[in-house]
Design a protein around this nucleic acid. Sequence first.
DNA 1: AAGATGACTAACT
DNA 2: AAGTTAGCCATCT
Length: 122
Amino acid sequence: MANASPGAENQSQEERFRRIWEVVEGIPEGCVLNYGEVARLAGLPGRARLVGRALARAPKKRNLPWHRVVNAQGKISFAADSPRGQRQRKLLEAEGVVFDDDTIDLDRFSPERAMDRLLWGP
DNA sequence: AAGATGACTAACT
DNA sequence: AAGTTAGCCATCT
């Protein structure tokens, strides 16, 4: 039988998650990327929501820098007063990401910009 | 099994 | 500036 096992259908989904996790792992310290961007880089354009799902289901074991993913407005996608929201903000601030009234300047803290800093200096 | 939900976003009011 | 709408689609009820 070609694909009667329940696991077979989940294979491609697992594959997508893995690609998303790989992209997130590639975000340098002190940088952030938004969900849509991560999706694009993972070869899944237009599927920002899938990135959120993938992060929610990421194995703890993997030690993903999940906190470096924020929404397209440069804001944390958890309520600012929620435990998760505060934890994410703390993690980011600890690596030098600056919040301007709950909002991060995505250009300033993009990995692209980090590369420019390396080449041209701050 | 069908409908709601959501760690989203771009495009419109 | 802030709210709504339409795409998105795997998971959860």
